[in-house]
Design a protein around this nucleic acid. Structure first.
Lengths: 172, 172
DNA sequence: TCCTTTTATGTCGTGCACGATATATATGCG
DNA sequence: CGCATATATATCGTGCACGACATAAAAGGA
């Protein structure tokens, strides 16, 4: 008896108690009801909405997110950045190399541990933070969500994300 | 006076009325507070959590999402699928070709309009829906969110997504 | 010390994602 | 009909994203 099966069972039982409208169980079958679909399409929408803003800065969306972390704290290790972005270093390294080619960051081996690579902002990279400043407000405006809705959304997203990150061996 | 500037103004004013705690204005500067960061990292987490399940079916995550839409209604046009996925046809076409190469779908030109390409599930593609069935419940379990939280999350996500899709010319 | 193991990053191959552009079919107007 | 225009999909180039593997430095034990 595997974990997923048990889980489905519990859910179906739960549905009977709560008397919701879904036919077979509480497990949604329509894409519109699946959180994965919601996040997937929302991330496409966000990416697209950012593009016209970022084009002016000559940045891609992942590059912008990465810089956001560096504007918060300069000189982070590749590993730190990768962890915060939930991204593999094999993805991050080429991205950082492009940012370096653009002149926005410098990658330097750590002095204590030469295996590490520390990512430092250049003057150009620091200057970008000022240019990028108005974008956030503009995007927030575009969402048509209130401040409290955005707050709740963020809380739920981070909870979902961190829940999924917890170790769970799929067994069905 | 551009739109984004006005918007920032409004937000700062609003903050004063509501007396929230953020220092300069209600516009967050920390990544953890940015919804784009939340969605970006959550989508990475979701993708990763799906991978071990989908590996057994020989599918990637975007392929799975696409099939989900076809399981709902077979024979959709490429354009319909692209719109629902918020994806360009230039992304979808190669994905569909891979699904065709795997034997899960067939692409046929429309009979009334030969420009259109209709995507039909094969028997193999239909059969996958049964194999994929337990995955949803397992993922929901993994989120550590309650049903009502997931419901609220989905509502907020779709509202955000559709808000961003509404036409808005960036002007800052 | 030398050798194994671990850790940090990078390289490579495949697939997703976009914009710009191409191709091919349909539509509309003279 | 003949041709311009519009529409539907596909192709191509660049960058993101992953896993598998490579490299190189650090750590640890005989």
């Amino acid at each position: 008896m595997n974990r997923c099966f048990v889980s489905t069972f519990y859910i179906a039982h739960d549905r009977k108690r709560r008397g919701t409208r879904q036919s077979m169980s509480d497990v949604p079958t329509l894409a519109e009801d699946l959180f994965c679909y919601g996040v997937y399409t929302a991330s496409h929408a966000i990416n697209r909405a950012y593009i016209p803003h970022l084009k002016k800065l000559g940045l891609t969306y992942p590059q912008y997110i990465t810089l956001t972390l560096l504007w918060e704290r300069d000189g982070q290790k590749v590993n730190e950045l990768a962890k915060r972005l939930l991204m593999e270093t094999s993805t991050l390294t080429p991205l950082l190399k492009r940012l370096e080619a653009l002149g926005h960051v410098m990658r330097r081996p750590g002095e204590l541990d030469a295996r590490e690579v520390l990512v430092h902002l250049t003057e150009s990279g620091k200057a970008l933070s000022m240019q990028a400043e108005p974008i956030t407000a503009c995007m927030i405006e575009g969402t048509s969500l209130s401040r409290s809705e955005l707050q709740r959304l963020q809380t739920l997203l981070l909870k979902l994300r961190d829940g999924l990150r917890a170790p769970q061996t799929p067994q069905h």
